[in-house]
Each structure stands twice: as structure tokens, then as C-alpha cells.
Amino acid sequence: MKNDIILAGVGGQGILSIAAIIGLAAVDMGMHLKQAEVHGMSQRGGDVQSHLRISDEEIASDLIPKGCADMIISVEPMESLRYLPWLSPDGYVITNTTPFVNIPNYPEIGKVLDIVQQQPHYVMLDCDTMAKELESAKSANMVVLGAASPFLCIPFERLEAAVAKLFGKKGDAVVALNIKALNAGRQVALNSK
């Protein structure tokens, strides 16, 4: 039982919260974990990625070998494509469709989404709009995590419990909103499966 996951996005989009939730759930299950993060200069509005590995056996490398990732979870559509060299042939691309445009040469979004749709396995969803509709605009990252949840080796209740643990300090209302966002994303993935 293992998942090798590339988390992708732009600095400040909350990919580390996604990592923290999967990590909390995995450790609660007694699994091994390694998670390589990006800190420092590259964080300033640049592309960021995290290699997250969970396994019931000991993990050797902090980095996932190319061509071996089970999934790419991306908070930004173009960023989901940047890490295709790491994705295994039967791996999943799970991505938000709302672009984060902070460069002048951002490609036409239609073309980006076309390429996502050419992948053998993908889930695409507009996490930003879904989060806004739930009146929780900041929870777009939870929506995309929810969409990834059917493909994780972690039971969904464990993820919900981890969300409650991570956001517990911020109060019940925040926890409830994030769990709602998580469920909304999961439904999209289950319906498209």
C-alpha cells in the first residue's frame, strides 16, 4: 500500500495544507511518510511543488523517481502539466481549472485544459468556483484534495478527521466549511469515474 503524489501549484496557493492533511491521516494510520517541500526564493509567486510519499513500508528517497508518481494533484491547471515527466503511465492528473495568471505569456487556458483531457486518467474541476459557491473561497485546495480522495490509499473518514485536526484551532465553522469543500470535490471525482 503506497501513494507517490506530486502536489503542484503557485507559491501561496496552499499546497502545503494538502500535504499536511494527507500526512496527518497517513501517520495516524501508522504509515511511513516522506515529504519534500520548497522553501525560500522559489516561493515568491513562482511554481512550487512537493513530493509526498506515503507507504506501509519504509521509504528510501525523499524524491519520487520520474515516471513513478501515482498522481499529480494541482491547484493550478498549467502547473499540473509541468510534472507529467513524473507521472506513471497509469497515474492520475487531478487539477483545478482556474488559472493563476501572474506571467505575461500564460498560454490560452482552453489549450491547457485540452492537454489535461488528453491524459489517460484525469479529473478536472473548477475548484475556485465550487469553493466560492460554498462560501468558502479559501478552500479551493480542499476541493481538489477531495477530488483526489478516491485515488488515495487512505479511507475518506481519515481525511475528514485530519481536516478537523488541522483546522481545529480555527473553530468548528472553519472545519465544517473545509469538510464540505472536501466532500464537494470528492463527488465530482466519483461522478466522473
Binding site: 515568491r44 502539466l81 503511465p89 492537454i115
Partner: peptide, 20 residues
């Protein structure tokens, strides 16, 4: 043997860090 997934599509632009 080396492993590698699909190449990065040409459309993907670089996104260097920038001033906030």
C-alpha cells in the same frame, strides 16, 4: 533502465519567482 513519464508539453511557460 530509466523511467520517465510524458514530456512537459511545450505550452507550459516558465513561472519564475517575482516581487509580490
Amino acid at each position: 533502465p530509466n523511467t520517465e513519464g510524458a514530456p512537459v508539453p511545450e505550452i507550459v511557460a516558465s513561472r519564475p519567482p517575482s516581487l509580490c
